[in-house]
């Protein structure tokens, strides 16, 4: 690794000053992407700034308005919080699919988002949960819809001097459910060939009130499949409607062919995974109704 300086600020203001003053600052939270990238030269830095000692970065609050997670919180932290599995199932599931136990113990939510891999597993989960990125700079804080956060592979809308301090996930509505599924050749330690996140809100009449579907690893960034969402909303849920939405989701995908799979294969996976995530959400909503 090329020489860089290191700072471990304990205050957000200090971190923001360092971000603004260094030539090529790199925030470090879990390090599972950035340390490897610094080793291989895929990214460079003159200053590595550790985020884990800053209180805002370690926030983890379930409040009436939703879930507030600091950017440095690890997948294991997310998996360990009692409120997450039921209410924020898609996020819980995605955090449990990343890497190995060792990786999940370190990999931070903010890092998974800022690394901006098209295959980032938490991205579709957060997109369907309508998450916002909490972005800070010396000018103050702003909330950015996560859908607008990604610019391209490895690229985000963060400007010089800005830091992602956390993620806000609004409390899901009643009669809703979310899930994330991905396809890889084995169950652990691999990168999604395709991934699909889904959030569904169904009225007691059976009409779909709100649908959000997001895709991983089939476009330059994680994307919402809005055409599939529109196919669902306002209509009565049925097997035929789910099939039509799955077909629509395929048209939103713009996959490449690479070592993990061909574009055609990925499109087919989008169809199958979209169908399965929608079916899972319907089952969960029905089960929740029976329980209450």
């Amino acid at each position: 690794m090329a020489g860089f300086k290191y700072a471990a600020p304990r205050e957000l203001d200090e971190a923001l000053q360092l971000m603004a003053s260094a030539q090529q600052p790199r925030p470090l939270a879990g390090g599972t992407d950035i340390v490897d990238q610094l080793k291989t030269g895929r990214r460079t830095a003159d200053l590595v700034i550790e985020m884990k000692r800053i209180p805002q970065m370690q926030r983890f609050d379930v409040e009436a308005d939703g879930l507030h997670i600091g950017a440095a919180r690890s997948c294991t932290d997310i998996r360990s919080h009692p409120e997450v599995p039921a209410r924020y199932a898609a996020l819980y599931e995605a955090a449990g699919l990343i890497g190995s136990v060792q990786i999940q113990n370190r990999a931070a939510l903010g890092g998974n988002i800022c690394n901006a891999a098209p295959s980032a597993d938490t991205a579709p989960a957060l997109l369907v949960l309508d998450a916002r990125a909490v972005v800070a700079s010396s000018k103050g804080a702003r909330l950015v819809e996560l859908d607008r956060f990604f610019k391209g592979p490895g690229q985000t809308i963060l400007e010089k001097g800005e830091l992602l301090t956390g993620i806000f996930v609004p409390t899901p509505a009643a009669r809703s459910a979310s899930t994330y599924l991905r396809f890889i050749p084995r169950n652990e330690m691999d990168i999604a060939i395709a991934g699909v996140g889904c959030y569904l809100e169904i009225e007691s009449s059976g009409l779909v009130k709100r649908a959000r579907i997001a895709l991983a690893a089939v476009a330059p960034t994680p994307i919402r499949a809005r055409i599939a969402e529109l196919a669902l909303e306002g209509r009565e849920i049925s097997d035929a409607l789910i099939e039509a939405a799955a077909e629509a989701a395929v048209s939103a995908a713009r996959p490449i062919s690479d070592v993990r799979g061909s574009a055609e294969y990925r499109k087919d996976l989008v169809r199958v995974l979209t169908r399965r995530t929608l079916q899972a959400c319907v089952q969960r909503i029905n089960a929740g109704e029976r329980a209450s």
Binding site: G31, V35, T76, Q102, N105
Partner: peptide, 15 residues
């Protein structure tokens, strides 16, 4: 107490 890959931890992080 948590298992981690020490090849992906920078030494100053252990402070």
């Amino acid at each position: 107490g948590r298992s981690v890959n020490s090849c992906l931890v920078l030494a100053p992080e252990a402070d």
